[in-house]
Design a binder for these strands. Structure first.
Lengths: 243, 243
DNA sequence: AGAATAGTGTCTGTAAGACAATATGAA
DNA sequence: TTCATATTGTCTTACAGACACTATTCT
């Protein structure tokens, strides 16, 4: 049997009769399981995502089929690596599964949407992959991918002040100003610098490293790090987002 | 081809060689897609869920296979109806999809977990279905269902004061005391009656009907209703839960 | 009258927005 | 010295917990 990879991604645009599948008990079964990944970061002060150009020249989310030897998280990481060159996202979480049997013209293919985060300096290797800034609004994507992107943005904004989810984007050590830029890009609003620092410290999700750095001009800034590299929930700050 | 229903649910306990499936393009495909539903309500002041007894006499969540003619929400409603007699849950939302290919001994079967809510007076018709109170802790369930239940409880607690999710459990019109009992059962803590009323009103998710009812003894109580029957997000109250 | 339930009013500590004032380092 | 950035401090409003007090209706 040929590798499943052969029918993933690049053949998506192909038309023709849909595929079918049947299991050994004689019942109709899905043709496959797919994943789509919303890979976000904050670049040059703007929330940005990775898109790939498919065979129809549409901009779509990176994704592809799940193999029978891996779970969906592994498939998401694998397709990111193959299609965008991103080795391992710092954060990966499930968003929603789309199950309408007619959602994919190739046949009955449930699709799992994922949210992934990487640091800003992440470079892409695939020729078809590109960073797209969200500062000018949400771009129109192929298939149902615009809707998936909206879900991803709701999710990361919803978690911003209630978890350490920004650990997926910020470097290991960062200044308050750096953190604020990332939070502002995600939230879509500006925060007062002093209030921001007070409230982020108040979450107890970050701790000072006792080191200082010069950024450009002006006073040197204290460095902070997240207490945990894994996703954890904090006390929660009821701070404005997207106002 | 026989109805897919024949291989759902009751045959789950059967051992033997796993099923396999292949699609018309010659690739391995999932054997099927399943759903499992955490159906919750508040009965006699206790958060309760519906369980069914499977062929191995294990207590498990109601669920079964998704057909190629329906999406997963429809499958969840259908299996609830068939296995528990619950006609249509007042609320149904996706929790998480489990995709480990080895999670089901019958073969490669991704499973979607759902949270469903019904009013307390909902009676069950299936002989194998029962209401289980959660007041004495979380019961041990078969398969990975205990973990799914934990996710469901986290979800409903997380949304309690940020959405009108209780609309799935409370009757169309209710007193503040009734609402408080439901919120307390979900949150797992007690609320001060006057503070509760003040804060629930403050969400603007409920409105008074201008009617009053006698409950048993004491002063008559004002009736309220949720402004929307669909799930909506409120301003959000930063109230304690599960303390 | 007394008990039981519903509802109002008030006090207090904390949270979060706004912004003034000070500290530190480079040009 | 002057500018730019970082950090501390203050003021104010709103929120949420606690709880005293009033209102209504039944036995």
């Amino acid at each position: 049997m040929p590798a499943q990879k052969a029918h993933s991604g690049s053949s998506r645009a192909r038309r023709g009769p849909p595929w079918t599948a049947e299991n050994s008990a004689g019942f109709i079964s899905p043709v496959g399981v797919a994943i789509d990944v919303v890979l976000l970061s904050v670049r040059d002060g703007a929330l940005s995502l990775v898109l790939v150009r498919d065979d129809d020249d549409q901009l779509v989310l990176p994704g592809g089929f799940v193999l029978d030897t891996e779970d969906a998280e592994a498939a998401a990481s694998r397709h990111l690596r193959e299609k965008t060159g991103v080795e391992a996202p710092r954060h990966l979480e499930q968003l929603k599964t789309f199950t309408d049997p007619s959602r994919d013209h190739r046949g009955w293919i449930p699709s799992l949407a994922y949210l992934a985060l990487v640091p800003p300096e992440t470079d892409l290797s695939g020729e078809r992959a590109l960073w797209q800034s969200l500062s000018d609004g949400v771009p129109k994507l192929g298939y149902d991918h615009t809707g998936i992107l909206e879900i991803a943005l709701d999710r990361i904004r919803g978690k911003l002040w209630w978890s350490n989810i920004a650990v997926g984007i910020l470097p290991g050590e960062f200044t308050m100003t750096r953190a604020r830029e990332v939070y502002e890009a995600i939230a879509g609003i500006k925060y007062d610098p002093s209030t921001f620092a007070r409230d982020l410290n108040h979450t107890a999700l970050v701790e000072p490293t006792r080191e200082h750095v010069m950024t450009s001009r002006g006073r040197s800034a204290a460095l902070y790090r997240f207490v945990s590299d894994d996703l954890v929930w904090g006390e929660g700050r009821r701070k404005r987002v997207r106002g």
